[in-house]
Design a protein around this nucleic acid. Structure first.
Lengths: 256, 256
DNA sequence: CGTCCGTTTGATCTGTGTCAATCGCTGTGG
DNA sequence: CCACAGCGATTGACACAGATCAAACGGACG
């Protein structure tokens, strides 16, 4: 292993609109909670449907094209967000170019569980994204008015903590194939309540994103995919869409 | 790298009382919040000093000798805890013996930020420990009575999430020496408000614990210690007590 | 049809895991 | 009091998994 593993991995825009320029965030007025597909998955569900006007009043809508940056490491944190559509990655860079993707964010996920006054990660859109933005101050007053909202946030923060601790095991003790198996199972499980098929996983991110998420190189990720395919655990529809043939074997490999 | 890294690492009791039998938890009545050294560091600080009787009424005290187990992976979660004294480790085991130490818990740390109905980690005392135990139900009613308590819990959960995400970078992208540097800096920073000297770090845990925390082997941990010493970044007082000679270099190495 | 870029595959190198021996401290028993 | 056993930590030799280097493939788009 190299002293500087992953130093080659390059940050790059990617996703649905492959060759689109990164573009920049667009602000819009809030579209309303009633039709929001993410609402049942998000902390917003802690506020009764009758009171969504309070949420709508506080929130602004952000449209983020694939490749665009929502916030950069070191920026002051002024807002928190709920993802309503698309996927983002949470990235940290080392001065020598090594990159870590600390996680992927999907519809319903909350951005803002941090005690730090500044962002500790850069947030980049993997695909075109939609988000609800809440100024920190508004979120605080909403929490005071709706105690259930704070409870919901605590519950979601706890489940994110559980997930992050699970990733520690992936990175600390699992072999490449096992890490990939765990990643696919977890991603599949998260996509299912968001309209995904039970035995398919969509991979809107690049191999470099996966590699930097699993602490590997793109070559090792690719080889691990190939081996999982050869073992019959997965099948490719195309490089960005995988069929989970033997979920039990994948779960076993990941130590779940 | 092996397919089963760290498979050799053995779980073992250790700490202050090296050869003491593991022993078992002892229950006691609560000693009172007034003299509690951990209180200012813990979520308990969210409840005004005048109202600590509510905490004391809900809490039981647990004394845990070094090596003893507070809870095992898979056990149903009935209580949450605040550590008042000593150090614990949060351990997950794979069926083939690979072990991950997901973290170390110190005075003021809260045990119970999880959405799962069962423990996802085994909690073992590294040294003799003291804890305050709260039945889940009592904690829920305390949160309702004292909204600041729930805010405090959310804040602490967020800071734990920040710390855990930081560990992802350690495990995912840093070389052994860098991981160890980051570990020492972080441990030193946590020990300082708990009565530690600013330039010393106590390591009550074994090299095996450190190895399983950093995703390495004990040999690599030992060699990394040696190299940090040779480079002048640290000095040994004994294997369990380190002087941080060049904190800046350590922070730089860890990408902080 | 050709370029671009992400992905896959092959060959080689090296850092870290594995195996093994030694050191040093602690506690024990003759 | 000293010899010995036990355990954790350190150090050395070697092997191999995965990183690095390099090339080819394949779809998207102009």
């Amino acid at each position: 292993m190299d002293t500087r593993p992953g130093a080659r991995s390059a940050a790059e825009p990617a996703g649905t609109a492959r060759h689109a320029a990164a573009g920049s965030p667009k602000r819009a007025t809030h579209g309303g909670c009633a039709g929001c597909l993410a609402r049942p998955l998000a902390i917003c569900a802690s506020i009764p449907a009758a009171d969504t006007h309070a949420l709508e009043a506080a929130a602004g809508e952000v449209l983020l094209p694939a490749g665009a940056t929502l916030a950069s490491e070191g920026d002051p944190r002024r807002e928190v967000y709920t993802v309503t559509r698309g996927m983002l990655r949470r990235v940290r860079l080392l001065s020598d170019g090594r990159r870590l993707v600390a996680g992927f964010l999907m519809a319903g996920d909350f951005i803002g569980f941090s005690g730090a006054p500044r962002y500790r990660h850069t947030l980049e859109a993997v695909t075109d994204c939609g988000l609800c933005a809440f100024p920190l101050q508004s979120m605080r007053s909403l929490c005071q008015r709706y105690p259930d909202l704070e409870s919901g946030m605590l519950a979601q923060a706890c489940s994110e903590l559980d997930a992050t601790r699970g990733n520690l095991m992936l990175l600390g003790r699992l072999a490449p194939g096992e890490r990939l198996a765990g990643f696919l199972v977890e991603l599949g499980a998260r996509q299912q309540p968001r309209g995904g098929a039970s035995d398919h996983v969509d991979l809107p991110m690049t191999r470099a994103d996966i590699a930097d998420h699993l602490g590997l190189t793109i070559e090792t990720v690719s080889r691990s995919f190939t081996r999982l395919r050869q073992s019959g655990a997965i099948a490719f529809e195309d490089p960005r869409r995988i069929r989970l043939v033997d979920v039990a074997a994948l779960r076993r490999a990941a130590g779940l």
